[in-house]
Write a protein that binds this DNA or RNA. Structure first.
Lengths: 205, 205, 205, 205
DNA sequence: TATGAATGAGGATTCATTCAT
DNA sequence: CATGAATGAATCCTCATTCAT
C-alpha cells in the first residue's frame, strides 16, 4: 500500500473534478496541471500516460468508494429482516448511501460516463464488483422470501426493480431537483416497493 | 422541410454509430468520413463544424425519436385506466417502448452521454421535452388516483419510481443480460409496482 | 481579341472587387463564385486555376487600364511645353489621371498589392510598362530642359520627385482625406514642384 | 516589460521575413516553424493564433521601429530652421531615416501591405501614430513659414509633397535601383523641393 | 455551357508526452 | 523531485479543383 504524496493527491482530485465536469476526452492534461497547481511534466512523473491517470482515478474511486457504498451493513439488514417491519433499518442504510453518493457525485459520474468507453477498465474494475453486489442484494431478497416476508418473485428482477427506483431518485435529487427531501422520498419509494401503488379496500399501513 | 441527401444521411448514421460507441470527443472526423465513405471535407459541406454535426445528430434523434418514444398512446392508457386491471394496456405500451429503445439504443446512449457536456444543447433540445414527459406521466398517475385505482401518493415520486424500475430493466437487457425475456420482466415489474413485494395473507392481483 | 462572355466579365468584376478588398490569398473562389452569381465550377471553365484568374485580372487591368493612365496625351504636353507656363496643360492631364485612378482605385490596389508577391506576373505584366513610362516621363523632362524651361537636373530624379508628390496626393485623397479638392491640390503641388517652397524676395508667384 | 525568449525572437524574426516576402496569407505556420527552427506547436505556445502572431509582429515593428523612424530629432530641425540654409540639418535627418528604413525594409513592407486588410490592427496600431507624425511635420513647416524661410503654402500639402518625393526615392533605391547614391538623391530632391525645377535667370541655391 | 456535389491535400491548432535543467 | 519549454502527431477545418449530370 504505497502512500500517495500530497502532490499526487492534488493531481488525482483535480482530475476527478475535471473528468466529472468535462469528461475524460474533454479534459486536457494542461487543465489538470493548472487545477492541481503543478507543472505539466509533474503529472507524468506519477502517471505514465493520461489513460493511466484515468485508470488511477477509477481505481481510486472503485477501491475506496464503491465498496463503501455497496458493502456497508448488509449483514445487519439481513438480521433485521426478521422484524415485521424491516423498513426502518433499510431506510437507515439507504440514507447513508444517499449521503455517500451525493458527496461523491463526481466520482459516480466518472464511473458511469467513462467506464463504458474503456472495455479494458470495465473488466479490470467492474468485473467482480457489480455482479458481486447484485448477488449480495439478491441474497438479501432471497432471505426475505425464505422468512415469508417478501413474495416469491425472481430475486434479480425484484432487486433491479428497487435499485432502479432508488437510483433514479438519487439522480433526481442530485441533477434536477436538489430541493427534494430525501428522507421523505425514501419513505415513499419503500412504501411503494413494499405495498404497491394499488388502492386496496381494507388491510395495510 | 429540407430533405437530407443520401450522402448527408450516411454521414449522420456514421456519426451516430461512432458517437454512441466512442463518444463525441473520442471520435475523429476522419473516422466518421471513413465510416460514411465520404471525403473528410464532405462532412464540412453539410455541417460547418463537428459540434454542429453533434447538434444535428441530437436534433435528429430528439425530433424524430424522442417524441415517438415518449408520446405514443397515453390517451388510450388514460381511458383504459378505468378498468380494474389496467396492466394489459400499460404492458402493451411499455413493450412498444422497449422495442423502440432497443432498436435505437445508440441514439439513447448519445443523448444520455453527450448532452450533459453541452449546456447549450441541453437547453436547446431537452428544455421542454423531459419536463413535458414528466408532466404527462404525472397526469396519468393523477387520473388513476382520481378514479380510485391508485393510492394517493405524490405523483412525481410515484412516476419516478416506476420509470426508474423500467429504465434499469431496459438497460439490464440492452447492456448486461440480452437473454432477458422482456415481456416476462414487464409483467413482473408491473406486478411489483402495483402490488408491492410484501407477502400478504389473503388478497393479491 | 477573343470576346469575354457576360458571365466571364461578371467573374472578372467580382474577382477585382474581392481581390482589392481582401487580397488574392484572402479571397476564396467560393466567394468569387457567389459574388459573380455563378457556380464554383464555372470559374474553372474560364480560368484553369485561381492563379490564372489573378493573371487575367492583372492582364485586364494592365492592358486596358494602365496604358490609358500612362500614355494619354503626352505628345500634346511635349508640344505645350514650349509655352512659358506649361502648368495649365499639365494640370489638365493630371486631372484626367486622377479621375481615372479614382475610378479604378480597386485595380490600382490590386496591382500594387499583388504584383509584388508574384515574380512571374511582375515580369510578365510590368516588365516593359513601368520602365517605358519612366523613359517617357524622363523624355518629357529632358525636352523641358533642352528648351530652357526646366533646370538641368538628372531627369530620373526630377521625374520621380514629381511622381512621388502626385502619387501621395492621389492616395491621400482616395484613402485618407476624400474631402480634398484635387484641383486645388494639383495647383499647389505643381507650384511647389516648379517654384519650390523657399521664400524669395522679389520675383515670381 | 516581459522579455522575449530567444525562441520567441526567432519566431518573430522568421515571421517578419516570410510575411514581408510572401504576405501574411501566403505564409503557412509550417514555413514559419521551419524558418525559425522550432516545431510548429511551439509557435502556438507563444502566440495563440496566427493572427495574433501578425499582431505581435506589427506591434513589435510599430512600437520599436516606427517611433524611431518618425520621432528622431525634429526639435533640432526646428531650431536649425532659423538658418538661411536648413538643408544640411534636414539632410542629416533624412539620411538617418533612409538608413533605418533600408535596414527595416521588410518591416515597412509588412506594415504597408498587411495593415490594410486588418481594420482592427489599423485602428490599434496606426490610430495615433500617423496623424501624430503628420501634425509634427506640419508644425515644422509652419515654423519655417513663420520665420520667413518657407512660402505660405497649406502645410498639409507642402508636407505631403515632400514626403511623397522622399518616399518614392526610398522605394526606388530599395526595390528597383539599389545602385542609387542616396546622399546625392537627397541633395537633389531637397534642391527641387526648395528651389523648384524652373529655370530662372539670376539667383538659385 | 453551367452546375454544385464531392474531393483531398494542405493549413491552423491542440495536446499528450519528453527532457534538459 | 519538480519544472515548463519544446515537440510533432493528430485533429478540425478550408479551399482550389474535378467531374458526372
Amino acid at each position: 500500500m504505497k502512500k500517495r504524496s500530497e502532490t499526487q493527491q492534488r493531481i488525482l482530485d483535480a482530475a476527478i473534478n475535471l473528468f466529472a465536469i468535462q469528461g475524460y476526452h474533454g479534459t486536457s492534461t494542461a487543465q489538470i496541471a493548472k487545477a492541481a497547481k503543478v507543472a505539466e511534466g509533474t503529472i507524468f512523473k506519477y502517471y505514465k500516460t493520461k489513460k493511466e491517470l484515468l485508470r488511477s482515478v477509477l481505481g481510486y474511486i472503485i477501491k475506496e468508494l464503491v465498496p463503501t457504498i455497496m458493502q456497508l451493513p448488509f449483514e445487519e439488514i439481513l438480521r433485521d429482516c426478521s422484524l415485521d417491519d424491516p423498513k426502518a433499518a433499510i431506510k437507515q442504510v439507504l440514507l447513508q448511501k444517499v449521503e455517500l453518493i451525493s458527496k461523491n457525485i463526481y466520482c459516480v459520474k466518472i464511473v458511469i460516463n467513462e467506464i463504458q468507453y474503456h472495455e479494458d477498465l470495465k473488466e479490470e474494475y467492474l468485473g467482480q464488483l457489480v455482479p458481486g453486489f447484485i448477488k449480495l442484494m439478491e441474497e438479501v431478497y432471497r432471505t426475505g422470501v425464505s422468512k415469508g416476508v417478501f413474495r416469491d418473485i425472481n430475486p434479480h428482477t425484484a432487486v433491479r426493480c428497487f435499485v432502479g427506483s432508488f437510483a433514479l431518485t438519487v439522480l433526481d435529487k442530485n441533477l434536477l431537483n436538489p430541493q427534494l427531501e430525501i428522507s421523505r422520498e425514501i419513505d415513499a419509494i419503500l412504501d411503494i416497493y413494499i405495498n404497491g401503488v394499488i388502492e386496496k379496500r381494507g388491510s395495510n399501513g
